[in-house]
Amino acid sequence: MDIQAELIEMIDDLFMEDITDIMDEDLYNAGILDSMGTVELIVAMEEKFGIKVPVSELGRDDWNTGNKIVAGIKGLKNA
């Protein structure tokens, strides 16, 4: 399974929302993510992908859509 599919599944598990068709939509504006959800996502990503995402890294400007998060994960995995 690739990162994108895993992220979609993760978000569906955590927040009961399917973001397959809205990968470029702002997840905060859509009401899917809030500060609580952000942290849950961070913890889940840490466990799933074995990366360390600092809380202050997950800014609302650069980690706010499905595609941006995927790019972020890739960036951190390769770092």
Binding site: S35, M36, V39, E40, I42, V43, V55, S56
Partner: peptide, 28 residues
């Protein structure tokens, strides 16, 4: 939000202090 709430939630979720996520967010 960034330096208190999210960090509190992080600690609570990471260490699985509460089973229920709603309790976690409420306490935070």
């Amino acid at each position: 939000r960034d330096f208190v709430f999210m960090r509190l939630v992080f600690v609570l979720v990471k260490n699985k202090i509460f089973k229920n996520r709603n309790v976690t967010s409420g306490v935070a």
